[in-house]
Amino acid sequence: MQFPRLLLPLLLLLGVSAQAQSPTYGVGRTPSAEEIRAWDISISPTGEELPPGRGTADEGALVYQQKACAGCHGATGTGGAAPRLIKNDRGADADPWSLGRILPIRSPYATAVWDFINRGMPLYQEGSLTTNEVYALTAYLLFVNGVIEEDKVLDEKSLPQVMMPNRETWAPLPDWWKPGMPRLLDYPY
């Protein structure tokens, strides 16, 4: 409690705006830029954090073999003990929501596919894939689900541009939404 009392006159002296937040407790240290880089694996839907790299569906098919993805997900992305990776066959014009809860088809953004392969695959060796292998596997899964052409090169620029079938058909939280309020206007429950 001593710290803020001492700090206040100092701030006034320096003419710091009262609006600026300042640390109250001074506990914890500043991570180095290198530490932040090493820990930060988040990828936004707009892809700012994507590392440079590239891959195609053909290369991805090879990685799928080499990394034994088939062992859990099946030789063709289905039939294994792990979740299937290939959409249900509902015809060309089917509602994307009817194609299954399958990441490379339901996700509104291709970045989420890249992110999950990068952070969560393969089982027991998560985080071991190279950047190019992740781009290649993403391209392979998007190709076999009919989202991109076979020869499409995915890289840090093209990946966020991929138009997923669900891009416009999911609902974000409404603008009026706030925590601690009735959940929905006119909804008495």
Partner: peptide, 19 residues
């Protein structure tokens, strides 16, 4: 909204459902 794997699994089709 970052649309992580967890978030993706809980996506909704209409905004009432999301709310």
């Amino acid at each position: 909204f970052y649309m992580t794997y967890n978030d993706y699994g809980h996506l909704r089709q209409d905004s009432d459902d999301a709310a």
